[in-house]
Simulated scan of single mutants.
Amino acid sequence: MENLPNDWLALLALVFVLGLKHGFDPDHLATIDGLTRFNAANNKPHLSRWSGLLFSLGHGAVVMAVAVLVGVVARRWEIPAWVEDLGAWISILFLLALGAVNLATVFRTSPDQVVRTVGLKGRWLGKLNQASHPVLIACVGALFALSFDTLSQTALFSLTASSMAGWMFSAVLGMAFMLGMIATDGINGLWISRLLNRTDERALVASRVMGLAVGGLSIMVGLFGIAKYFFPVVATRSEGHELLMGLAVIGTVALSFYLALRLAHRQAVALTPHPSNSEI
């Protein structure tokens, strides 16, 4: 993020991809999982289905507000280097912890149970994780945005946008980030809702594949962040490729979704009883 593109279109594309990538944050996935399950269990299928969308709207509203605020009051202010370093390390430590916890959850979950994604921030919210009103679900998303890594990332791209075209471009970038996050978090909510409607082998296999993907990817991204920090050659070679790296992360998760569905389908077909010759 320290070398953001100077072209407005490239910056807009990058921030949109960052929003897509941010939506795959394991803490987001875990909290949306919990909200979706809670409302499904309380016979609120529509609210359950759209929990991811409502969560990302609340989260995105805070990002938008911060982007505009930074663009208006801090046009001549530069964020100290230590702020970015601290934000990077907070993100790295959370990713490593979340990756380890989610991988452990996959291996500990009984084969006859659906794997539930585990988060850290969600545990701090107490009963808000059992929100059963659209406004409350959006508030949970808004509270998630009040974290150092999210706020520092928003401030960085907002300052760049403000120096290029004023606070209005900061607002546009905030909207692009929110739309990217809405896409991934909304799809995640629909995905969990679909799994809850199935109790067969498809749901079991699909949830296990996605648990492994989320845990493994979290650790890989965290280790890459460490490599960039301690090995200048890695940081140098990755400069200017933030968009490609973000797309790579998104592509990996999307491929995991596809593989989960394919494996689950094959498992279901294998377990389907076929008529014997005598029955024919």
Rank of each mutant, 00 (worst) to 15 (best):
F38M: 07
A235H: 10
T105M: 09
S158L: 06
M245E: 03
P80W: 13
A88G: 07
K21G: 04
R237M: 10
F16K: 03
L125A: 11
I187S: 14
D200K: 12
A270R: 11
L86W: 02
N39F: 08
S132P: 15
N188M: 07
W124M: 11
A65Y: 10
M220L: 15
D185C: 15
M181D: 06
G60F: 03
L263K: 05
L9S: 12
L259A: 11
N197K: 07
K127H: 13
W82A: 15
P134L: 12
M178F: 12
A213E: 01
L204I: 08
F55K: 09
F94S: 04
F24V: 07
V140K: 03
T150H: 01
V118H: 00
N3V: 10
G34W: 00
D85M: 14
G240M: 11
L125G: 04
F231A: 07
L255S: 12
G211W: 01
P80C: 11
I137T: 12
E78N: 09
L143I: 15
L93N: 08
G240Q: 09
W82S: 15
G60K: 04
I90F: 15
S238I: 06
L14V: 09
L151Y: 02
D112H: 10
F169W: 15
L261N: 13
V135T: 02
L159W: 03
I32M: 08
M175F: 13
L263N: 05
Q267V: 05
T154I: 04
H22I: 00
V172Q: 07
R108N: 13
H133W: 11
W8Q: 12
Y258P: 01
V115C: 02
A67N: 06
G71P: 03
I250C: 14
E84D: 14
R194T: 15
N129E: 06
V73E: 06
R108G: 12
D185I: 08
A203Q: 04
L93M: 12
A235N: 08
I137S: 04
